[in-house]
């Protein structure tokens, strides 16, 4: 049985006089200890996916239909009280900006101890001992003294390490990390990612890593979902998606990477912008920006099909592939 199984998840936002669809028929699985990347441009619905998995969508967002099976229980159907016992315990989340994630008026110790005591019957000193052990695991120097400090006394990198330690406090099966390093100094981004990878591997924790950095995804994850306008448009093993992307959007993302461009040349951006939720075109949402677009792309929504080693939602994937084969032989 997989750790997490998402089936046809639809999330909507209730607007003043209608609803807009933010997530459209999302389905994916995560095995125990597996690491999955979710990539896509800004506004693709990556964060919404993460919050939906925690049942933490804030109004006006709500799960409209679909199932989120976590270790066999359907999260979308759970009461608040049931869900509370899962959050931070069996499933933990790492937020984007460590400067605003921790509560400024509570000490690090208070924020760690309360998390343990919310899920386990422990005394304060027992909880502090566990906190110290976890802080040591994320390489925080003199952890016992850190417990007495307030967040503002620590650097951003240090705070994100502490947040990782908090995520590990109750030995969860799944960690959802939403752009855990974008708010940090470039020099420490790699350190934090490395730490996260090491901890997930040694503790056999499943990871869902949300990012728009394909480089990070290729280092960190085994499988990848590519999202566009609230849909999964390509899914498969990370190595294969990076080396041989099938969907024109994924190809565009990879071509836009700086490594794909000679120094001094302009980056090969995908022309145009992602549609806003209120103006998603019928048919394939990527059609207006796609260089392989055909008439039926504008009218019929593509089915997700298995193509070679990935799943991809594109009408023209066959033709694309034969073009590419031609290019190779030439």
């Amino acid at each position: 049985m997989s750790l997490l199984s998402v089936r046809d998840l639809c999330v909507k936002f209730a607007m003043r006089d209608n609803t807009v669809t933010a997530l459209n028929q999302i389905s994916f699985d995560l095995a125990k200890g597996e690491r999955l990347g979710i990539v896509g441009e800004s506004g693709a619905g990556k964060s919404i996916t993460g919050f939906a998995l925690m049942n933490l969508l804030s109004r006006p967002g709500f799960v409209d239909s679909g199932n989120i099976l976590f270790q066999g229980d359907d999260i979308a159907q759970m009461s608040d009280a049931q869900m509370r016992r899962i959050r931070g315990n069996r499933m933990a989340m790492i937020f984007q900006d460590p400067m605003v994630t921790l509560n400024p008026v509570l000490t690090i110790g208070q924020q760690m101890v309360e998390t343990l005591m919310a899920h386990r019957k422990l005394s304060k000193s027992e909880a502090e001992q566990i906190a110290i052990v976890k802080l040591r695991e994320v390489y925080i120097p003199s952890p016992a003294e850190r417990l007495k400090q307030y967040p503002h006394e620590l650097s951003g990198g240090m705070r994100q390490r502490i947040i990782i330690a908090i995520a590990l406090l109750l030995d969860p099966q799944l960690i959802i990390a939403d752009e855990p390093t974008t708010a940090l100094d470039v020099t420490i981004q790699a350190d934090i990612m490395e730490l996260l990878l090491e901890l997930c591997e040694t503790n056999k924790v499943g990871l869902i890593l949300i990012t728009h950095d394909l480089g990070v995804v290729s280092q960190m994850t085994e499988r990848t979902l590519v999202m566009y306008a609230g849909r999964i448009i390509e899914a498969g093993r990370t190595r294969e998606i990076i080396n041989d992307p099938q969907h024109p959007y994924t190809q565009g993302l990879i071509n836009a990477l700086p490594q794909q461009t000679a120094p001094g040349q302009r980056l090969k951006q995908i022309p145009g912008n992602m549609p806003s939720l209120t103006a998603i075109p019928s048919g394939c949402p990527f059609a207006p920006r796609c260089e392989y677009v055909q008439d039926h792309c504008r009218t019929d929504a593509p089915e997700t099909v298995k193509y070679t080693h990935v799943e991809v939602a594109c009408h023209e994937v066959n033709r694309l592939h034969s073009d590419k084969a031609e290019e190779m032989t030439r």
Binding site: L56, R84, G88, M93, F95, D97, T101, N103, P104, A118
Partner: peptide, 26 residues
């Protein structure tokens, strides 16, 4: 509405503690 309150929820802290410790003090 703040991030730290959302984070406290994500840690599974009980509602009364979120309201009266995390939020009220701020």
């Amino acid at each position: 509405q703040s991030e730290y309150v959302k984070y406290a929820k994500a840690k599974g802290i009980r509602p009364w503690r979120i309201y009266f410790v995390h939020a009220l003090k701020n």
